[in-house]
Design a protein around this nucleic acid. Structure first.
Length: 812
RNA sequence: GCGGGCGUGGUGGAAUUGGUAGACACGCCGGCCUUAGGAGCCGGUGGGCGAAAGCCCUUGGGGGUUCAAGUCCCUCCGCCCGCACCA
């Protein structure tokens, strides 16, 4: 026997060189091939240091899908780029003085090298980096487009401020009151900042989720984040100040149960209201305390409900009652109107506050013990008494509307997207502040506004760009007088909200894209990424597409038709991290076993959408399998025996041919929309095992066919080994071969095992010919020896026959 | 608290439409080959009783529907994720 050793370190670079030299994975926009198009995309990587195991997983999944679709006849766009702006590179610059551009380029080079080492089938001709002026020129163009459309504006608002990173953050980037990036507690500051009006799209972002082929939990997370609630705005009149204070409520049916009124400590009128009342001093003290309390402290829901009286009253519009006003920190300024009507009888929070402060608790809906939040008929509600509360909602809103004291409204939890950052390494906001003209966009022909070099990256609460005086000082494009550039940079989520468009037309220097070209590829047919972007990136990108479509730049409404969300790879049950010391680097696995093993193992470990724990022993198993497949294929190829399989196979020949066709069917089904990579790989393992088991009993042509089929089927997961084994066996390039199709005749068996049950328990198994009908099967089962021995003394009452599966005899 | 997911051998997992539970792989045990094996090939491996044939038990616990339940329903327990004073 020849001494053939599976050596990925020899095989893999050889095939990678061919793919690179021949530009195998590049696709053109002219659609000369006439094939159906498919856009397969993994989320844009942030290049920091080396790729980690999560990158290996996402590209192993994406590449398997891309290869499968190509061989099923599609022209597949599968590009790559880098989300190259961002804080880590800048923080590194602070520590080392190395320019973020240089450290980022080092990281990009490492990512490029490893993606090639992994053999990912990428169209490198469309590669992009968001920090490249040729790219961010168009990011700036989009910003200006949104500005012109009134969808980008600069305004003062209470915003999240990270004292560590010295910058503001979007709501989505604050997790449990802490900065998503550095984990420091976030403060609330009143600042003038740039916003994108994503709230204008709240309803559409919600409505259009329905048609997306996305995991249900991701859609649910977006729905929760958008947070639509229907209710009413009701005006409560304050007689001394003669001001109407609107409140938002989802329960207008409980309006008669409002026994007090609460304002958020941040409400701008609180100080005015308290002025001159005996409570003024207490109110000031309370506000000071509430506003200086940390987020975490204030956000705790289990703490007692604090608050103080404002010394004033408002009038309940439905019954004219004067109810006392309070300031309390359980009311949030950022939701609704910053003030609420409190209905302690039917709201747990208002109930807690009323109990703590000895306030009246009134029942207005019949039902269980108070606080009662269920449904029921109204009581103590004037003319509305007796009405079921759900009906009363509409009627009370109508009454308010007629009386001009309120109206039905819809509230969203979604806030506008805060996009300015007081940091260096980001896309400059292309705006100019002119003393006479105000805010003026940089004209399109002057884009890009290049990011200047600076000496000092240290954040000082204002952008480091402000120090670049030559850059900051400019002239107003409108009036020509001296003016200053905007010094904030954009949130890096802006960069990644449109990169998938640029891939389609990546080398276009005249426009961000040609809408015609985009229409050919977009939307992305299969998007793949981690659950951590369920809200942030996926919501922002959806907003961008809708806004750009409204501006006439796009002809579609959603960026990602289908989404696959891959699970995390853990080790010893915990997320891999340097501090835990449980990191498995993809590079070390690739060096030791080869890329094919690394990729196949990560898909074999379990369902790709679930978290999975890394096991060093498991890698060995997959490596053993690839080695077995390749080795037998290489051995058989060396025999030079190339006779075709027999036309009328029998015995072992038939058995192995059947197994091969079974594997084709299984892998195809598992890949076709099911993403069941683990079971697909196990099917090829079974085929390989049978090749070994039957190799001395089958005709050479049959073994050759079975092995070539295995090589062909494993190719999407282990492209180098698959291509190598296939070429040795057939002389052909596997990626140029169509995906195999199972022969239906070989999927059917002549006999099968009929399970014979008595009262649901398996008592016998019979080999029966395929095609027997119910009556024949019933007879065979009743005659089955082991079943019969259990039938003594029993009366058969019923026989259930499932043709092709089993017979269940029911007897008492 | 609300919403979602999950719970199967010693381990990762399979079971696609209610129809043979445990595919495939790891680990372990045995055999072959070998000067040698951390290589390779072949076989065994859910638990209990049994010499064997075989029988009984088994998908987190309990209950139900059904000829038949890992799968459907109810209930309890445990773990994970998201949201969380959103009026």
């Amino acid at each position: 026997m020849t001494q053939l050793r599976y050596d990925p370190s020899e095989i893999e670079p050889r095939w990678q060189a061919i793919w690179a030299e021949e530009h195998t994975w590049e696709v053109a926009n002219d659609n000369a091939s006439g094939r159906p198009r498919s856009y397969v995309l993994e989320m844009l990587p942030y290049p920091s240091g080396e790729p980690h195991i999560g990158h290996l997983k996402v590209y192993s999944v994406g590449d398997a899908i891309a290869h499968f679709r190509r061989r099923r006849g599609a022209e597949v766009l599968h590009p790559m780029g880098y989300d190259a702006f961002g804080l880590p590179a800048e923080n590194n610059a602070l520590a080392t003085g190395e320019h973020p551009r240089d450290s980022t380029n080092t990281s990009i080079a490492s990512f490029q090298r490893q993606f090639r080492d992994w053999g990912i089938s990428i169209d490198w001709s469309r590669e992009l980096s968001t920090a490249d002026p040729r790219y961010y020129r168009w990011t700036q163009w989009i910003f200006v487009e949104l500005f012109k459309a009134g969808l980008a504006d600069r305004r003062e608002a209470a915003v999240n401020w990270c004292p560590h990173d010295q910058t503001v953050l979007a709501n989505e980037q604050v997790i449990d009151g802490r900065c998503e990036r550095c984990g420091h507690e976030v403060e609330i500051r009143q600042l003038e900042q740039w916003f994108f009006k994503i709230t204008d799209y709240a309803q559409r972002l919600l409505d259009d989720l329905g048609a997306l082929d996305w995991p249900e939990h991701v859609k649910t997370m977006q729905r929760n984040w958008i947070g639509r609630s229907e209710g009413a705005e009701v005006d409560f009149h304050q007689p001394e100040l003669e001001i109407d204070y609107p409140v938002f409520t989802t329960r207008p049916d409980t309006l008669f149960g409002a026994t007090f009124f609460v304002m958020a400590p941040e409400h701008p009128d609180v100080a005015r209201l308290a002025a001159g009342t005996p409570d003024e001093r207490a109110v000031h003290e309370y506000i000071n305390h509430a506003l200086t309390a940390s987020n975490a402290e204030r956000g705790a829901t289990d703490k007692p409900k604090t608050g103080v009286p404002l010394g004033r009253h408002v009038i309940n519009p439905v019954n004219g009652e004067a109810i006392p006003m309070f300031v309390a920190d359980y009311v949030l300024m950022e939701y609704g109107t910053g003030a609420i009507m409190a209905v302690p009888g039917h709201d747990q929070r208002d109930f807690d506050f009323a109990e703590a402060h000895g306030l009246e608790i009134r029942r207005v809906i019949e039902g269980d013990e108070l606080p009662y939040t269920g449904d029921g008929p109204l009581v103590n509600s004037g003319d509305f008494d007796g009405l079921p509360n759900r009906e009363a909602k509409d009627q009370i809103v109508s009454w308010l509307q007629a009386a001009d004291r309120g109206k039905g409204v819809v509230q969203f939890r979604l806030r506008d997207w805060l996009v300015s950052r007081q940091r260096y390494w980001g896309c400059p906001i292309p705006m100019i502040h002119c003393p006479s003209c105000g805010i003026v966009p940089v004209p399109e022909d002057q884009l890009p506004v290049l990011l200047p070099d600076v000496e000092d990256y240290a954040p000082k609460g204002r952008s480091p760009l402000a120090a670049a005086e030559d850059w900051v000082n400019t002239t107003c494009p409108a009036c020509g007088t001296p003016a200053k550039r905007e010094t904030d940079t954009m949130d890096t989520f802006v960069d990644s909200s449109w990169y998938f468009l640029r891939y389609c037309d990546a080398r276009n220097d005249d426009a961000a894209w040609d809408p015609q070209v985009l229409a050919e590829w977009m939307p992305v047919d299969q998007y793949i990424g981690g659950i951590e972007h369920a809200i942030l990136h996926l919501m922002y990108a959806r907003f961008f597409i809708k806004a750009l479509a409204d501006l006439g730049h796009l002809s579609f409404q959603e960026p990602f038709a289908a989404l696959f969300s891959q699970g995390m790879i853990t080790r010893d049950g915990a997320k891999m991290s340097k501090s835990r010391g449980n990191v498995v680097s993809p590079q070390s696995i690739v060096e030791r076993y080869g890329a094919d093993t690394a990729r196949s193992y990560i898909l074999f470990i379990g369902p790709a959408d679930q978290d999975a724990d890394w096991s060093d022993d498991g890698v060995e198993g997959v490596h053993r399998f690839l080695s077995r497949l390749w080795r037998l294929a290489a051995e058989i190829a060396e025999t030079g025996d190339a006779e075709p399989p027999p036309t009328d196979p029998q015995g072992a020949d038939l058995e192995l041919l059947r197994k091969a066709h079974w594997a084709i069917e299984k892998v195809t089904h598992d890949l076709d929309g099911r993403f069941a990579f683990n079971t697909a790989i196990s099917a090829v393992m079974e085929l390989t095992n049978d090749c070994y088991r039957l190799r001395t009993q089958v005709a050479p042509g049959v073994l050759r066919f079975a092995l070539a089929t295995g090589a062909s089927l494993i190719f999407p997961f282990a492209p180098h080994a698959g291509a190598d084994a296939y070429e040795r066996l057939t002389g052909a390039r596997v990626w140029e071969e169509p995906w195999p199709i199972a022969d239906p005749a070989l999927l059917e068996r002549e006999t099968y095992e009929l399970v014979c049950q008595l009262n649901g328990k398996v008592r016998d198994r019979l080999q029966v010919p395929t095609g027997l009908g119910e009556d024949a099967l019933k007879e065979l089962a009743l005659a089955a020896p082991h079943l019969r021995s259990h039938l003594d003394g029993l009366q058969v009452t019923k026989v259930i026959v499932i043709v092709g599966k089993l017979v269940n005899v029911v007897a008492r």
